[in-house]
Structures are given as structure tokens and as C-alpha cells.
């Protein structure tokens, strides 16, 4: 039997390690994927106080914009890279991370964001002065 030198053995072990790592990474990703797709207990709709006065109101996950022409509710997530928009200036919604500006109708006034804010569905219960905002459509 021909003796096996050390060099091919190391190469073989490295290759085996690489081959073994690939399914491990796949499995890790699969697990993370599964974890993300499990239905969450997280709310799909939230209830907040309803204020019919004109103005912009910031909530954790959404922004309400009440003008004389009606009410709009947007996701507070900036469409650029996902920062939470929590700031208004000169009648515009401003992202604190990269300075994207959105009009009160949600359209982009200034980049870097290129997509309008995501409008959210909502229901207003005037009797209870509350509004129910659906975070996912």
C-alpha cells in the first residue's frame, strides 16, 4: 500500500470541512427562515386615540396625518432603509437617519428615498374617539 503523505490529507480534510459547512449554513438559514415565517403573536392591528383636529401625529409604527381634506395613515417606516420617521418639519415628514422628506400625502419630496410612504388601512370609531390601524394589508 502506498503511504499517504500529509499534504493530500490536509487538502481532503479542508474540502470535507467545506462540504460539511455548506449544509450547515443551509440548515441555519432554513431555521431562520422558518422562525421568521411562524405566525407571530405580534399585532396586525393596533388601536390608538383618534384626534379629529388637523395635524401630524407620530406613533410607534404609524403616522396619522389629518388635514382639512381628510385623514391619512402611513407606516412610520422610511421606504429608504427602514428608519422610523418621528419628525415633522415645514409641513413635511422627515427621516432622521438620511434626511428623506415626504409630503403629507406620503409622496417623496426629497431623497434618498425613492418610494412613497406605505399607506395603511384604518377604521375610526368616533363614538369611542379611537382609531384602529391595520399594520398589514
Amino acid at each position: 500500500m502506498t503511504p499517504v503523505s500529509g499534504q493530500p490529507r490536509r487538502s481532503f480534510l479542508k474540502a470535507a470541512l467545506a462540504v460539511a459547512a455548506a449544509p450547515a449554513l443551509w440548515l441555519m438559514n432554513r431555521m431562520a427562515d422558518r422562525a421568521a415565517s411562524i405566525p407571530e403573536a405580534a399585532q396586525v392591528a393596533v388601536t390608538a386615540p383618534w384626534d379629529p383636529r388637523t395635524g401630524v401625529r407620530f406613533f410607534e409604527q404609524f403616522i396619522t396625518v389629518t388635514t382639512e381634506s381628510g385623514v391619512r395613515v402611513f407606516s412610520s417606516t422610511c421606504t429608504h432603509l427602514g428608519c422610523r420617521i418621528d419628525h415633522a418639519e415645514d409641513g413635511q415628514l422627515v427621516c432622521p437617519c438620511h434626511g428623506s422628506r415626504f409630503s403629507l400625502t406620503g409622496s417623496v419630496v426629497r431623497g434618498p428615498a425613492s418610494r412613497a410612504l406605505q399607506p395603511l388601512k384604518f377604521e375610526i370609531d368616533r363614538g369611542r374617539a379611537t382609531m384602529r390601524v391595520f399594520l398589514r394589508s
Binding site: 422562525a35 421568521a36 432603509l81 427602514g82 428608519c83 422610523r84
Partner: peptide
């Protein structure tokens, strides 16, 4: 709190493996 979604978004932009990288490295919640 603001930096986390930026990281997730940028990782998600890596070609091919972006979504997987984002999930594996930062979790999903």
C-alpha cells in the same frame, strides 16, 4: 433602534444571499 433596520436593509441588498444573510445575522424580529 434606528440602526438595526438600516443594517437589515443593507444586508438584504447583498446579491443572491441578501435575505438569508439578514435573517441569519440579525434575526427577524
Amino acid at each position: 433602534v434606528q440602526a438595526l433596520p438600516i443594517l437589515r436593509s443593507l444586508l438584504g441588498l447583498v446579491p443572491v444571499a441578501g435575505a438569508a444573510l439578514s435573517r441569519v445575522l440579525t434575526g427577524s424580529d
